[in-house]
């Protein structure tokens, strides 16, 4: 691999890098979220069939995208942590999980609220909805297994096994709407023939997707830093106790 991953295995270097990125990602979040929400909720036209409820899409679709991407990113960083014994990669998978779970929950809830006016029901057991629900449980299981171990390095490895096996679900979710003919509509943005939706809807959708990504990066940086500092604090405390023990 051309990129030397171990350069970023050093937490101090990682912290310097994220400190440099953080103001930009924070600014980008505010900017994109403000403009995206303006275009999505006020400036974009109503749908001729769906009326105002089409605006739920601008919250729902990017959340679902993020839920999938965050899980893929967790699986990749868990694999990197497993293969190259890369401590920051383990921490980054751990730090991303609650954010991903929130995106997944948001996608499920907004999907239900959108389904009621459009399909006449809050929930249907179709392939995409069910597989998103499974993804939510996978997030919960992942977070639970981190809590279950006292030894952090063991927890990291156990969680890595789980998240990599669960990653099989990701392509199933992505293609569920193509494989099974279900109520949920098939992909209409990232298709081989290019986007199938009009630019007045596509622009705010992409703005919102960018805003969600920037928001995730911002939260992610805060959480990884907190994890690293937490680990340092624990080591310092342990050293303190040891020194006291040696003196006494």
């Amino acid at each position: 691999m051309a990129v030397d991953l171990h350069r970023f295995a050093n937490p101090a270097r990682f912290m310097r890098l994220t400190d440099a990125i953080f103001p930009w990602s924070l600014g980008l979040t505010v900017l994109l979220l403000a403009s995206g929400l303006y275009y999505a909720l006020i400036a974009s036209p109503q749908d001729y069939q769906q009326g105002e409820t089409v605006r739920i899409m601008f919250v729902h679709v990017p959340a679902a995208w993020m839920a999938l991407s965050v899980y893929s990113m967790m699986a990749i960083s868990a694999a990197v942590g497993w293969i190259w014994k890369h401590p920051v990669a383990d921490l980054s998978a751990k730090a991303a999980a609650p954010a991903g779970a929130c995106f997944c929950f948001l996608a499920l809830v907004t999907g239900a609220l959108w389904g009621q006016p459009m399909w006449g029901t809050y929930w249907v057991w179709d392939a995409r909805l069910t597989s998103m629900l499974i993804l939510f449980f996978l997030y919960l299981g992942y977070m639970a297994i981190w809590e279950a171990f006292d030894d952090q390095s063991k927890a990291a490895k156990a969680a890595a096994i789980l998240v990599i096996i669960g990653a099989i679900n990701i392509p199933v979710i992505k293609f569920s709407v193509d494989w099974w003919n279900t109520l949920h509509q098939p992909a209409s943005v990232a298709t081989m023939e290019g986007p199938k939706i009009h630019s007045s809807i596509l622009t705010p959708l992409l703005l919102m997707a960018g805003a969600y990504t920037a928001l995730f990066v911002t939260i992610f940086i805060i959480r990884v830093k907190a994890e690293i500092l937490d680990r340092r604090l624990r080591i310092m405390r342990m050293n303190q106790v040891q020194e006291k023990g040696l003196k006494g």
Binding site: F137, L138, L140, G141, A144, I145, A148, F149, L162, I165
Partner: peptide, 20 residues
């Protein structure tokens, strides 16, 4: 195998396994 050494592995086991 993931929950083998745990004291209260049973509930966690179902959370890990049932989604799959």
């Amino acid at each position: 195998a993931l929950t083998v050494g745990m004291r209260r592995g049973g509930v966690l086991l179902s959370l890990l396994v049932l989604p799959l």
